[in-house]
Every structure is written in C-alpha cells, then in structure tokens.
C-alpha cells in the first residue's frame, strides 16, 4: 500500500514536471501592452471625473433643498386652505346632498374666505333649524317639505352631485355662429339649479327656452360686488316664496320687514315668517326686535 502510494506520488511529480515542460504558452506582447495601457488609463479616469463643472457638486444639495421647500409650501397651503371643521349639522346636510352646497360655497370660498368663516356658525344654525322643521313635518308632506327646505339642502339631482364647485365648462360646440346660444344652453346644470332656486317663481319654469335671460342674470350675479354675493347665496338658500319676499323687501326699511313677518304669522305661515325673520336678523343684526318677535 505504502509502495503504491510512493509510486503514485512519484508519477504525479513526473507528470507535474512534464506539464511544466509542456506548458510554455504566453500571452502575445500586444495583449500585454493593451492591458497595461488599460490599467494606467483607469487610474487617470478619476482625474477626468474630477474635471466636472463646478455646479455638478451642488446638484444633490440643491435638489434636496428644492424638495424641502416645495413640501413645506404645499403643507402650508393645504393647512391654510383646509377650511373649517365640519359640525354635526353640516355633516347631516352634506350626507343628504353632498354637492348641493357646492354652488353656494363656491363664490364665498373663492372670493371671501374670511367672510365664509364668519358666516359658518350662522349657516349651520339655519341648516339645523330647517332640518328640525323638516323632521317635524314628517314624510307625509314630502313635496311641501321639499319646498320648505332650502334648495341647497334638498336632495340634489345627479347632475347637481356631479357639478363642480366653480363655473361649469361648456362642452365643445360644432359651430362658432351659434356659440352664444350654445353657451346659454350649455349654461350647465349648475346654472339651471340656481335658476330653480331663484326668487321669482317664473324662474322655476325658466329652462332651456329662457337660457339667454339666465345667462344675463348669471353674468350680473357674477359681476356683482363681492359683498353682495353672500346675500345672494343666502337668498338662494330660502324657499322661493321667502326669496321673492326678500327681493321685494331688499333696500326697504326694517319696519317693512317686521311688518311682513307679522303678516306671515297672522296668516299661519310660521315657517316663512321664521325664515324671513332670520334673513332680517342676518341683514340687520343690530336692529332691536319688538317684544312679539323675541
């Protein structure tokens, strides 16, 4: 066994020696030169990399700073425009007609956010009152209830729910000649809804046929002073009958308002009387009320 191993080891060493004799290949000189040149060039490459323009070193810090500034700006804007927290009354109204409040809120939110914040408690209170009145009347008087509830809080049609907050965009038209008429017709569901809630009863019937008048009215409302917009929004929240009275009494003395309220109460229209009184209180908060109205 040991002899065999010794013979094997001897053979292995002879094979190794023979292999060393046989294996004499070398890489060609051009390959040597090429590889050595690559090795030196690789060492020179960092120097070339260092020759980058001066601003390239600031790319990453500047990018981080830009991202940070943008993030802070977005957070600040969102937190500032985040708006008021929802009250319980608003949650109820919003769940019933999520988009109905959009046309009302849009002008105030766009042009006078501070004013909207100031009116928020009053609006909430009015909504709560309307809701309570609706509950008292019950389901049997549903049509009447609908008329009593301010349009902004009534169940909105699907077109209303899809309406955006701002001015709706008219769909593209085929011809420029009838652009104005089409613009009137395309005055959009939002405009038609506002017409339905307008003070004049005839406005309820104003549909596509009265579109030019609606457009004019819309333009007049849009171009009105910002101070008048909350009043228009409040008027839109009233029932048509009360809204008509508000239009009629607009600019008249407080005594005329109180007389109309008293007349309504005498006629048994207590809801309309309350709504008109609320509008009076909103317009003349400092006007003392007679004892009967307190």
């Amino acid at each position: 066994m040991a002899v065999n191993e010794r013979d094997t080891a001897g053979e292995d060493s002879r094979i190794a020696a023979l292999y060393r004799e046989a294996a004499l290949e070398e890489p060609p000189p051009y390959l040597d030169a090429s590889i050595r040149r690559d090795a030196r060039r690789a060492l020179d490459a960092p120097a070339a990399a260092r020759a980058r323009p001066w601003w390239s070193a600031w790319r990453v810090p500047v990018a981080f700073a830009a991202v940070a500034v943008l993030s802070v700006s977005v957070v600040a804007i969102v937190s500032r425009e985040g708006g008021e927290p929802l009250t319980i009354g608003e949650r109820v109204a919003t769940s019933e007609a999520p988009s109905a409040a959009a046309p009302q809120a849009a002008p105030g939110a766009d042009h006078a956010p501070a004013e909207t914040e100031a009116q928020a408690p009053e609006r909430t209170r009015r909504k709560l009152e309307a809701r309570q009145r609706q509950d008292r009347r019950g389901d049997a008087s549903a049509p009447a209830t609908q008329s009593a509830v301010p349009p902004g809080e009534a169940s909105a049609p699907s077109s209303q729910s899809a309406a955006p907050r701002g001015e709706p965009i008219a769909p593209p038209r085929a011809s420029a000649a009838d652009a104005s008429a089409q613009a009137a017709a395309g005055a959009s569901p939002t405009l038609a809804d506002q017409e339905r809630s307008a003070p004049a009863p005839a406005a309820e019937a104003a549909a596509a046929a009265t579109a030019p008048a609606a457009v004019q009215r819309r333009r007049a409302e849009t171009s009105a002073a910002p101070a008048a917009r909350p009043a228009m929004a409040a008027r839109n929240a009233l029932t048509p009958a009360v809204a008509a009275m508000v239009v009629e009494l607009d600019g008249r003395a407080p005594a005329a308002w109180l007389e109309r309220v008293a007349t309504l109460r005498r006629d048994g229209r207590t809801d309309d009387a309350d709504a008109l009184l609320a509008e009076f209180r909103r317009r003349y908060p400092d006007e003392p009320l007679p004892e009967a109205f307190r």
Partner: peptide, 21 residues
C-alpha cells in the same frame, strides 16, 4: 500603476495557460 505591472507580470502566463487549456 507600477504595482499593477508587477502583479500582471507574476500572473499573466499562468492565467493565460489556464484559459488556453
């Protein structure tokens, strides 16, 4: 770079033969 030259000198032939085989 001289260190690479020495390294290359030491290993070029065995590596080349390994590949040829």
């Amino acid at each position: 770079a001289a260190a690479f030259d020495e390294l290359y000198r030491r290993h070029k032939a065995p590596l080349y033969r390994y590949l040829v085989r």
